[in-house]
Design a protein around this nucleic acid. Structure first.
Lengths: 136, 136
DNA sequence: ATAGAGTCTCTAGCCACTAGAGGTTCAATA
DNA sequence: TATTGAACCTCTAGTGGCTAGAGACTCTAT
């Protein structure tokens, strides 16, 4: 159970080295102990915490959200309403993005279909961009 | 057909004033003429160009894509294959994003459903974040 | 002439990293 | 023990696409 260096931590968690340092800078992970020479040494707790952060980032939570989720997870006796609220809010953001991207997708498809090897002067894509309100 | 100021241009196109200046800085729109006092004056061409940019941005094209689309639209005799390629590539990016967001959405829904007013110690949300690989 | 709305430039900030320079330390081998 | 080379350190600056604010100047209508 020896402590590990930042490179190994990166390997274990899938978080890149500069990103780990960035998280430390931004107080998402605590400052680890250091060797005599000043290099970071991490324990199992750091691995767990970084895994948590990585999963949350994969799900698109903001760093600020994650900060709050981490804070919550340090108070096991509390109700998890707050965590649910954060997750719920994020879900709504995601739904919004999906809806918007779907509109964009259909508009793009329409444009591309309408355009079949014409010259730029008659190009439906460039035409659509200059004239229609697209999807707003 | 008098020339207009930047504020009116912003109104007409829905692009905010600082954003117009930003586009000028980044060579998306040409430098306009100026009054004696140094204020920008725009003509109808600027209105059209900015409309084009706005629509393309609404569809999520990058500034770099737009630069190329604008360049293409200045050569009316060319084939519009290049425009189609840009649009097609962008469509693929959009499809990718939608797919990814859908995975995230279902994962979030699963987490939220599983979590019903428990304490943090048993919270399915925090639990899921620390343990499962989520959606990668 | 004056008031007030509009505009100017410049700098810095947002988010979540990423890249690079230039130097130091660690661990494994000879 | 000396040496090598991989790993690590700090610091600054850049990414994209804006947005905000400070402090000064200009335009237009009365």
């Amino acid at each position: 159970m020896a402590d590990i260096g930042i490179g190994r931590l990166a390997e274990l968690t899938g978080v890149k080295i500069p990103t780990i340092r960035f998280y430390e800078q931004n107080d998402l992970v605590p400052r680890p102990s250091r060797t005599e020479g000043g290099q970071r040494r991490y324990d199992q707790g750091a691995v767990r915490r970084l895994h948590f952060i990585r999963h949350a980032r994969d799900l698109g939570f903001s760093v600020e959200d994650i900060r709050q989720l981490l804070a919550l997870s340090e108070h096991p006796a509390m109700s998890c309403d707050a965590a649910e609220a954060i997750a719920h809010h994020h879900l709504q953001q995601v739904e919004g993005k999906i809806a918007r991207l779907r509109l964009i997708r259909s508009e793009l498809k329409r444009m591309i279909l309408a355009c079949g090897g014409r010259s730029v002067a008659q190009c439906r894509i460039l035409d659509a961009l200059s004239k229609t309100p697209a999807c707003s």
